[in-house]
Amino acid sequence: MKLSRLTGRATMLQLVLWLGLISGCSTVSTTVSTTVDTVKDRANRFAEQVDPFEKVNRKTFEFNDRADKAVFKPVAQVYADTVPGFMQTGIGNFFGNLNDVWTGVNSFLQGNFQDGFTDIMRVSVNSTFGFLGLLDIASEANMPKHKNDLGQTLGVWGVPNGPYVVIPFLGPSVTRDAIATYFDYYGDPWAYMRPVSVRNTGTFVRLVDKRAGYLGSFSLMQDAALDEYIFVRDAYLQRIAGQIETRKNYKQLREEDEETQRQIDEDEAAAKAKVDAATPKP
């Protein structure tokens, strides 16, 4: 449950984050044992390296799960069932458009200018012709949406994950991203919305809309996992590692895709020419 926006006040969050950072620093030097390589050792060693706070994290994970079952999930379910589809799409688009601003900044920070310019164009088009972002006409006009945040940017720059942490209410993260989330919040235009009551209501709606998008996948995850905590952790760490890798190599990956597409087109043209040559001319 990585929800990148926050409802609460920043002070509480700051405290949690700094605690995470400090305790993260103190455990950087994990000794690697070279004794008999039993299964138990290996499993434990992995956990020690990426998840030294497993005990606390598990507690937070359970707390989040209970809070989700008691509050967020039911509210999101009601939202998904009662609010008309076009309104849900509009809400998602509106906040998605605001999010594109910070995504664009991070595209540039990651050195991906092509995506960065697309992001600027998206915000311009959607904010004007898309009625303040309620419609995502940019996507239809072949300007695909991206999603970048500061945690990813730092990762691209080579900042390591740090220990795995589960943030209260927000879910899985790593120390680097947890700290970056704080800046992500202020990088989003909605943080400057006034009056505060409107901002908070909006943030709440935004979170509910986001949670509604994951109603099915959460229950799937619970079905699939033997130990849900480990399952979510391992999947999450793979996911962010993959995201950073993709962003680091975006140029190469894009060129590879273009090259593949070119070859496919060539193959098709060659096959067509062959058929044309084989059919006798009238």
Partner: peptide, 10 residues
Amino acid sequence: ETYKGNFSAE
């Protein structure tokens, strides 16, 4: 890869 962790933990 995700199941590996679950398997080895069990």
